[in-house]
Design a protein around this nucleic acid. Structure first.
Lengths: 354, 354
DNA sequence: TTGAAAGCGCTAACAG
DNA sequence: CTGTTAGCGCTTTCAA
């Protein structure tokens, strides 16, 4: 059997073996180095890295996946409570199981009290060695940041979701620009509210808490646009509803009593069921231009009924998928699609519901 | 133990070999049958199919990809001409090359005259045996439909893009619901146009041609919403601009001369550069509520300048990617993510530009 | 028309 | 610390 000379392919792929030869070591060693497994002399590791670099080596994800025995363990750390949006995230993650399995991965959820950074930090710390990648949705706080850095230092990939934790230790942030989301709401409310004959139209704001970073950012963007571009509108002082319908409902009822002429309402956080109830009970539904966030079942219904004028959304489905893709891509060094990580600020009217 | 009733183990993976054993043939034969390669007796094929079905076999895409020698050949058939949107599609496809290569696939573009179904049908026919999958963007016409059916019968996967071709022979349609897109435009224009003190506000419409299915659908949705929900608006007769700026510009200039009080404008097709120019030249920019489609560079600029109030978009990037994913999933029988094929109707204001 | 067997490029035991 | 080697599940010759 004569040895066939491989015809020079247009894109001669570089394999692990090529790197091994170039570095003068075995493929096992290259594997160890490139995958950060322990037990390689520093000097050897450097040679390997250099060789890989020189040859522009890219691992073949298909081969890696095929050979891999244990599944990748992804852990999602999410806020506990009955928040519809978090429920959506979880449902989507569940639906992803078969897709993940096909990629030798599986995901697990851990809940942590959203308002206790201490609890979150503890939950994160407990994950070292238990997870290959951690996807985190929680408040940015020094304790949390520290836990993330420790986890990353231990070799775990960390991806932040929805609300970023500002440390270079996290590999990616999957979520939207909340200032831009607030500005978008501002433009919608500003243009939907018809300028009154005289005086100004009054518009209310409900948020969960000023201390939640994303809420504060949305508020900022909203106020900015209204002030700069919609002089016919005057904003009422923001109300804090703790993201809970039991609280937002009376809050909005009170607001409507004080402001019978209210022309618009922007709700920044959760608790939309309560707001819809208040608007309907006071006959304000439809008359008040109401814009809110997150296309949950309640919001969808409000849109269809005409209670809500528009819903600004970050797709829970896309976010979960993007987070999984980012985490896996990081773990396998697989190529990412150009903007697979970018989440759009979606605007839904009753007409373009998905 | 002859007939083994396999208890559904947690994740007992079924392999090609299991199917082979169950069917009493070799793995090579199973491969031939399941991948539609020639040279297998009908009776054998049936046994194999039955066995695969019984065991709920799903091929491991990683293994398939690793073993596969030849790349999958995807061919995109797109309308020729200088349309910005088509240019975006092409650019995106180019950017996808490395990603495709990693999946043992590569894509190629063939251009066909959009207004000649005959030419399109010919181009499609020529692809039999040349492509594993064809992604098609062209007018629905009996000739085209016939060509698609012939191609599919020859074993090629066909995916339609942007504008559907109504035949069960195509595996998927990747695109948006254009009636809903038109309705969305209707709601935006209806709410953005301030109701006049007396009389009605007049709103113009520019489309490419009534004979383009997607344009006709958008027009329908738009008229529907305006008529039903925005009685303060009166629509001017639609103008046809053939999707070309040289034609749309004078058309809109003329319109503004005849209708100096024009309050809104909906442009359904391409040629937005011309429309923007006309609006700016006549000082109508910003005063006229202009809503258009497709976030091209021109449209983006118009939004930022305030000439356009909103842009309704179908993401070219997502469409190309979705089309590739659908085609490859079909080819490899790989699992698709729940709604990887669904393209959203995106609404962009100056504030939520990606 | 069918089967046997050699890889695809990587991972992971197991030796050394 | 490093190398050898046996697979992972599929595709693809080559023989029968």
């Amino acid at each position: 059997m004569p040895t066939a000379t491989r015809p020079a392919a247009p894109f001669e792929p570089v394999r692990l073996e090529d790197v091994a030869r170039e570095a003068g070591v075995s493929t096992a060693t290259v594997d160890r180095v490139l995958n950060g497994r322990a037990g390689v002399r520093e000097r050897t590791a450097q040679k390997v890295h250099a060789a890989a670099q020189r040859l522009a080596y890219r691992p073949d994800p298909a081969a890696a996946r095929l050979a891999r025995a244990r599944p990748w363990r992804l852990v999602f750390v999410l806020p506990e409570g009955s928040n519809s949006f978090v429920a959506l995230l979880r449902a989507e993650l569940e639906a992803l199981a078969p897709w993940l399995a096909e990629r030798r991965a599986r995901a697990q959820v851990v809940l942590a009290d959203e308002f206790s950074p201490m609890a979150a930090a503890q939950a994160i710390g407990a994950l070292a060695g238990e997870a290959d990648a951690v996807v985190l949705m929680c408040q940015d706080h020094p304790l949390v940041r520290h836990a993330v850095e420790a986890l990353a230092a231990a070799g775990t990939t960390v991806v932040t979701l929805v609300s970023d934790v500002a440390t270079p230790a996290r590999a990616h942030f999957v979520g939207i620009d909340n200032v831009a989301a607030g500005r978008t709401a501002g433009t919608l409310v500003g243009r939907f509210v018809v300028p009154p004959r005289r005086g100004k139209a009054r518009v209310g704001i409900v948020l969960g808490s000023r201390w939640l970073r994303d809420h504060a950012e949305r508020l900022f963007g909203f106020q900015q646009v209204i002030a700069a571009e919609h002089p016919h509108i005057e904003l009422v002082d923001p109300l804090e509803g703790r993201d809970r319908s039991e609280l937002t409902e009376p809050l909005v009822r009170g607001l409507l009593e004080r402001e019978p002429e209210l022309a618009g309402l922007y709700s920044i956080g959760a608790g939309n069921r309560g707001i819809a109830a208040a608007l309907k009970a006071t006959q304000a539904a439809g008359r008040v231009v109401w814009v809110c966030h997150e296309l949950t079942a309640h919001a969808r219904l409000a849109l269809l009924e005409g209670t809500a004028a528009a819903v600004i959304n970050q797709s829970a489905a896309r976010e979960v998928r993007a987070a999984c893709r980012m985490a896996l891509a990081q773990l396998t060094r697989e190529r990412l699609l150009p903007d697979d990580g970018r989440i759009r600020i979606e605007v839904f009217l009753k007409d373009n519901l998905p």
